[in-house]
């Protein structure tokens, strides 16, 4: 079994339901991620990651693999140009777990191509996105422009 390339953990003072909603609601994701996550979130459905601006440029695309609200969400992750090429798809897993009155969110990213630009971008991206998500849910304010 290949080991995941990245595992991130963040503790957020919120409820599992609010955190779940913050992952799947395009209006919420555009606040802290500056991108919209668009899908109907049914297993097998397409997931789109679009820039939250006028052009709404499609930046990433994938497929929902598992959706078990409010505990576990899994989707594939790839460049739009690589859609349909299984070997080019990486995978991201969100696990939500209540601990001592807060929620622990674990983000696991695996199946990334070694040495790829995607792998490099991801190692810089997730800590920013997760800090901003935490800030939005706890204080109502996301972090200033991330990208």
């Amino acid at each position: 079994m290949e080991k995941p390339q990245f595992v991130y953990v963040v503790y957020i003072a919120t409820t599992e339901e609010k955190l779940w909603n913050a992952l799947i609601d395009p209006q919420m994701t555009s606040k802290y991620w500056q991108h919209e996550n668009v899908s109907d979130w049914k297993p097998g459905s397409r997931w789109e990651h679009r820039e939250a601006n006028k052009e709404r440029t499609l930046k990433l695309v994938g497929k929902v693999l598992e959706s078990s609200p409010p505990r576990r969400l899994v989707w594939t992750w790839g460049n739009p140009a690589d859609e349909g090429r299984e070997e080019k798809q990486s995978r991201v897993t969100f696990d939500l777990e209540p601990v001592r009155g807060v929620v622990r969110l674990t983000v696991t990213h695996d199946l990334l191509e070694p040495g790829s630009a995607m792998l490099k971008g991801i190692s810089e991206g997730w800590p920013k996105v997760l800090s901003s998500l935490k800030s939005l849910l706890e204080s109502g304010q996301p972090l200033p422009k991330l990208w």
Partner: peptide
């Protein structure tokens, strides 16, 4: 301190750098 995240894979405990708290300090 949540600077390292761990997962179990079979009988191996794997350690991952978790820079999220450093990002919070930075901010």
């Amino acid at each position: 301190a949540n600077l390292v995240a761990t997962i179990w894979q079979g009988r191996e405990k794997l350690h991952y750098l978790n820079p999220v708290p450093i990002h919070e300090i930075y901010d």
